[in-house]
Write a protein that binds this DNA or RNA. Structure first.
Length: 290
DNA sequence: ACCGCACCCTGAGCGC
DNA sequence: TGCGCTCAGGGTGCGG
């Protein structure tokens, strides 16, 4: 489940491989929920475009093209953005993994790869694969905006306690729900919300308005720390996520609570609990988090 | 304004 | 062995 660190790792690894190249051809999968811009239009409009930069806003990637045009990309839950030729078991459907293991021949064309870009220099292209199609791709004209981007709050890497404190006043929702609100903080998802709350010693169910100024400061610091640490380790590869080179991230090995229900807390050895908050599974240590 | 919830999608894992 | 059910959750949109 790609959150800010996974998207940022993608950006850092892809930028040097894409910026300065010019798109030669585009192939798309069939129209679907995934395409905000119809695939036929992408196939026509992207040809000849130079890639001039790769930027990130929250969990969105923006590929800057010629004359102010931009390609908006979102990885959703299962999105994989990678350089053609990268290898990873996560890129192969299970039926085909089994067929390969039995020594059978080539892998069939993959129905989950929705966007393929090739470049004029003839080097390896870009692939966007997304099993569940919760990802998004949209071509933005020069000066055109996207309501999703307009609604984003402060980038989570630069959050401070005062911002959290101000945003949480008068809010009855659990503090975790506030962390997940992209309009307040852009980039935090389920994994890092749970991890930051653990590191700050705050129970995820605590009503936002009852989190003190001091706790907000601690929480903001831990949000930044956990995101930065995850970026350093290449992000979390828990279900589908891979880096653009096909490698797994390593942050899942440093999780303290996420998906550790029933295990012993690394700090106090209490049993990690799992509850549901706003339809998201949430994990915390009942002793370390009050 | 705020908040809870249904929905979009597919594959893994489980019980029978 | 295989079928059908539930769950996973980022983001949008709707109803109360």
């Amino acid at each position: 489940m790609p959150e800010l660190p996974e998207v940022e790792v993608c950006r850092r690894l892809l930028a040097p491989k894409l910026v300065g190249r010019r798109i030669a051809s585009v192939r798309c999968g069939p129209p679907s929920y995934f395409f905000l811009t119809p695939p036929r239009r992408l196939e026509q409009s992207l040809v000849g475009e130079p890639v001039t930069a790769l930027e990130r806003q929250g969990k969105y990637l923006l590929m800057a093209l010629g004359e102010g045009r931009r390609l908006l990309l979102h990885l959703g839950m299962t999105g994989q953005l990678y350089i053609a030729g990268a290898r990873s078991p996560r890129l192969i459907r299970r039926v085909e993994r089994e067929r390969l293991a039995q020594g059978s021949a080539a892998v069939e064309s993959d129905p989950h790869t929705h966007l393929m870009l090739e470049f004029e220099d003839g080097g390896p292209g870009l692939r966007f694969r997304d099993v569940r199609k919760f990802g998004k791709v949209r071509l933005l004209a020069a000066g055109e905006s996207d309501s999703r981007l307009d609604k984003l709050g402060r980038d989570a890497l630069s959050v401070d306690g005062e911002l959290l404190f101000a945003a949480s006043r008068g809010r009855k929702v659990p503090i975790k729900t506030l962390l997940l609100d992209q309009g307040v903080l852009a980039g935090v998802g389920n994994i890092y919300a749970d991890e930051a709350l653990f590191l700050a010693g705050i129970r995820p169910t605590r009503p936002a308005r009852r989190v003190t100024r001091e706790q907000c400061a601690r929480l903001a610091e831990q949000v930044r720390r956990v995101l930065e640490r995850s970026i350093e380790t290449g992000g979390s590869s828990i279900s589908d996520y891979i880096a653009p080179d096909g490698n797994d991230g390593q942050f899942q090995n440093e999780r303290r609570v996420y998906a550790r229900e029933g295990e012993a807390c690394g700090t106090c050895a209490s049993v990690i609990k799992r509850i549901v908050i706003a339809t998201r599974s949430s994990h915390y240590c009942p002793r370390c988090q009050r």
